[in-house]
């Protein structure tokens, strides 16, 4: 028996999801020039993983991006944001913008905005993915005064 959804859904989601990731990365990187920034870009990146999760089932996703790796990635995102803020101490005050601001409307014109956008995008993307997959990992079935936990769907009789 095939796990997951039908063949059409699997093929389409396999084709579409890299484009969604690239669109999310572009929303994060140009956050100081166009609408968006860290948080919406992170939500878009996690949405692409959730599409794959819905189409293929959780064992296949967890073999590509395990819970341990996404745990470490989201902590690195948080520490990166704090270190961008602490780097302002070199110039004098907290959170000062010490990087070189190039010419207007180019990619490097925001100072330390680009680093904080990348840090927040990383953190939000992995946190939302972790939240959704952890809430769906356990199946609870309530049968006539006894409650049982199941990990795989085949165990439910």
């Amino acid at each position: 028996m095939n796990k997951g959804m039908s063949e059409i859904v699997k093929t389409i989601s396999k084709i579409v999801s890299p484009f969604i990731i690239i669109f999310g990365i572009s929303v994060i990187f140009y956050g100081h020039l166009t609408p968006g920034g860290g948080f919406p870009g992170g939500v878009i990146i996690s949405a692409s993983f959730v599409i794959l999760l819905l189409a293929y089932g959780k064992e296949k996703i967890l073999s590509k991006l395990s819970l341990y790796k996404s745990d470490i990635l989201h902590d690195i995102g948080a520490l990166m944001f704090l270190s961008v803020a602490l780097a302002g101490f070199i110039g004098g005050t907290f959170f000062l913008n010490i990087f070189d601001k190039g010419k207007l409307f180019s990619l490097w014109s925001g100072g330390n905005l680009i680093f904080s956008n990348i840090a927040i995008g990383l953190k939000v993307g992995t946190s939302l993915f972790l939240g959704i997959i952890l809430l769906s990992m356990v199946r609870i079935v309530y049968k006539e005064n006894k409650i049982e936990f199941y990990e795989k769907k085949e165990d439910i009789k």
Partner: peptide, 24 residues
């Protein structure tokens, strides 16, 4: 404000799963 509300809803959803386990 959207981020804060999202976190509250996520915590309430997890809490209600645990309440279903204890009370049925």
């Amino acid at each position: 404000s959207i981020v804060i509300d999202l976190s509250t809803i996520c915590f309430l959803a997890a809490l209600s799963i645990r309440i279903y386990e204890k009370y049925g």
